[in-house]
Design a protein around this nucleic acid. Structure first.
Ligand SMILES: [Mn+2]
Ligand SMILES: [Mn+2]
Ligand SMILES: [Mn+2]
Ligand SMILES: [Mn+2]
Lengths: 220, 220
DNA sequence: AAATATTGTTAGATTAACCTAACTTTGTAT
DNA sequence: ATACAAAGTTAGGTTAATCTAACAATATTT
């Protein structure tokens, strides 16, 4: 089935919302705001996607991807993350620059291109942000449940991924001396506003709770 | 200036027509048929491109790209040919498969991507079809004026490029044992229908005039 | 120079993706 | 249980890119 660029973005957004929020109670407003359109617009598209049997929903009910819809969404995420890896590893892009371009490249239609790119990159498992790349069968390892904000003072953890992919956030992460696989020591947490003092390779920084919620970690 | 995918294709088509036909008297019908739309549609788009000062034309007159329009068209051709080279050299695509995918990739908007891709490929001068790749300043070497159909029996030449980029033609070229930089010996030409007997690496084949018109060559 | 053929233009319609404004349904708080 | 707020839907409209059908201008042929 051939989908438009726009339709693909709706499917991808639906999947990402369920990934990020954990729950799968996706609503029209939430979907619309993720795509930066008005709820009325999202509603129109939902009718079309329902017609194409890619989403499952009824008036005033919750939205779910069908298995076909989910399959397509995963394929788009696979392409997105493979392209990000290509840009980062082969073309010397920095990790805060890859996302924007991958947003375009993920819509290129060519099964052969995806397969060959995957091979060229030696079947990478993670993208530059630490997110798992679905394999050619559409299987994704679901990782990172825990964020830096859940850690307690005195403990140490390893950063495995970032939740926010925006350029400003990623540049901030670099400024703090952080990157994928770095060790983070939690020095202290301010009771009042949950500001956290962390140490990375000897460099101490104070970061906000919002910042800490966007760093995925695993325990040491 | 941000152009739509469609607008870019009109500019590219205008430039390609003047390249291929030599003359720059491009008309509405010709443009429409190159883009596989109806003349009425092309006419609407011409008004829009004129408004944006990318083409120069008046009612019932001939169509010309402005220098700005030409600059953009060359940039798209540059991207197209760089992507074809990437697919061919790095991803093991065959030369009859690259064009279709490059038609999509040429519309990706990122100056950095183009520059880095060019560097990654070591600043290639020709694409897999032998066509020159415009450099970052938009300069193109205009090559291939002569085709195999202009050769006479007993002479020898070297194939430098193909005019037709379609998959069936390119597969036929391979079947005849031909490729870029191969030597072609013209054995004989049939007076009646201009069929040509050629020899490539010891392999003799009879090819039509239409075939011969789509092979660019230089004299030995 | 007329007649005819070719080429180019206009008018009016359609579809996809968006919008605003008004309305309806569902959920929450008094 | 009612009232209010939040979420979701519908109606009607816009723009970009396409179409068909009718018309107008230009080019070619007799
Ligand atoms: Mn991304
Ligand atoms: Mn990523
Ligand atoms: Mn091509
Ligand atoms: Mn080419």
């Amino acid at each position: 089935m051939l989908l438009s660029y726009t339709e693909e973005n709706y499917l991808k957004a639906l999947l990402k919302i369920t990934f990020d929020s954990g729950v799968e109670k996706v609503g029209t407003n939430e979907l619309a705001s993720a795509l930066d359109v008005k709820p009325a617009t999202a509603n129109d598209m939902l009718k079309k996607l329902k017609e194409k049997m890619l989403v499952d929903y009824k008036k005033y009910g919750k939205i779910n991807l069908t298995s076909e819809g989910k399959k397509i969404a995963i394929e788009i995420i696979r392409k997105h993350r493979l392209w990000e890896t290509f840009l980062y590893q082969k073309l010397e892009f920095s990790w805060d620059e890859v996302h924007e371009v991958a947003e375009q490249l993920e819509h290129i239609q060519s099964q052969k291109l995806v397969d060959k790119l995957d091979k060229f990159l030696a079947y990478p498992e993670f993208d530059p942000h630490g997110d798992p790349i679905p394999n050619s069968k559409g299987e994704i390892k679901v990782y990172h449940k825990k964020t830096l904000s859940e850690m307690t003072p005195g403990t140490t953890c390893t950063m495995v991924a970032v939740k926010d992919n925006s350029s400003p956030f990623l540049q901030y992460v670099v400024k703090v001396g952080l990157g994928i696989n770095n060790e983070i020591k939690i020095i202290s947490i301010q009771e009042y506003d949950l500001m956290m003092v962390i140490e990375v390779n000897g460099q101490r920084s104070t970061v906000s709770q919002k910042f800490a919620e966007n760093i995925y970690i695993v325990n040491k």
